[in-house]
Simulated assay, not measured.
Amino acid sequence: MFRIEAEVDRARRDLLRSRLRDTNTAASPVLAALRGTAGEREVPLHVWALDEAGELAGGLVGHTWTTWLHITYLWVATPHRGAGLGSRLLADAEHLARTGRACAGARVETWDFQAPDFYKRQGYDVVCVIPDYPPGLTEYTLTKRLA
């Protein structure tokens, strides 16, 4: 007999993640080789741009895991758009990931109304397109080799 629950339970979430990680590690030689190394952990990587007044002009939030940079958020304030700040934030994050964390690749997910063309101009390739996710939009996954 099973009881199905739908509440948010952080302790169970963490337990599930740990058990899934253990299962994946046991099944994959690549993940098993990372066990106990720095590459096993997700390590935050943030790059911030502040204007002359010290206000947030833009930023990139992501993390590195194994040999990959995962870009979660990249945003530039309207007055600073079109001046290369987004490109600089991205280049700085890629440089930190490549030189300080031995990352060989980067990945990002974006929607059609956001920045797929921006990432393509930065050397990223589309590897996945999901139409109607959410309905009426298209999600793109893009990757770039950093090595």
Rank of each mutant, 00 (worst) to 15 (best):
A77D: 13
G105S: 15
Y133L: 12
G86E: 03
I130K: 09
Y140C: 07
L85Y: 03
C128D: 06
F118D: 07
L90Q: 09
H95T: 14
L142K: 12
G100E: 14
G100L: 03
D132F: 00
Y140V: 02
L85M: 11
R88D: 10
L69I: 07
Y73M: 12
Y124Q: 07
A83D: 08
S87P: 00
V126C: 11
G123R: 11
Y73G: 01
P131R: 10
Q114E: 15
G86T: 06
G136E: 09
V129M: 08
R81C: 09
P134I: 08
L69E: 02
Q122N: 14
P134S: 08
R121E: 06
P135A: 12
R88W: 04
V126R: 04
G136R: 10
E139M: 15
Y140M: 10
V108P: 00
E94K: 08
Q122I: 00
R107H: 10
T78I: 06
T99V: 13
W111R: 14
W68R: 07
A102F: 04
T72F: 03
P134D: 09
R81G: 05
Q122P: 01
W75V: 14
A102K: 08
P131H: 01
Q114D: 12
L96S: 06
L89S: 06
G100Y: 07
Q122L: 08
F118K: 04
R101K: 07
A115Q: 02
E139Q: 15
L137D: 15
E94C: 11
R98V: 05
D117Q: 14
S87R: 15
F113T: 09
I130A: 11
Y124T: 05
V127I: 14
S87N: 09
G105T: 08
A83K: 15
P79Y: 08
G123Q: 09
A104F: 05
V76L: 04
F113W: 12
A77N: 01
D132Y: 00
A102D: 13
T141P: 01
Y140S: 11
C128W: 10
A104C: 10
Y119L: 02
T72M: 13
T72H: 13
L142P: 13
T110W: 02
Y73W: 13
D125W: 03
P116H: 02
P131T: 09
A83R: 15
L90W: 08
Y119D: 01
V126S: 05
W68K: 04
R107F: 11
H70Q: 11
R121G: 12
I71N: 05
F118M: 04
R98S: 10
I130F: 11
A91P: 04
R121Q: 13
Y140F: 15
F113K: 00
G84W: 02
L137R: 15
R107S: 11
Y140W: 13
T72Q: 14
Q122E: 11
V127E: 08
Y119N: 03
T78G: 02
S87W: 00
D125F: 02
R88Y: 06
E139N: 14
I71G: 02
G105I: 00
L96N: 03
A102E: 12
R98N: 06
Q114H: 11
Y124S: 04
A106D: 05
D92A: 13
G82I: 10
T141M: 13
V126M: 06
R101D: 00
L142V: 14
L142R: 06
D117A: 15
E94N: 10
G86W: 03
A106E: 03
Y133H: 13
V108F: 04
I71M: 08
A102P: 00
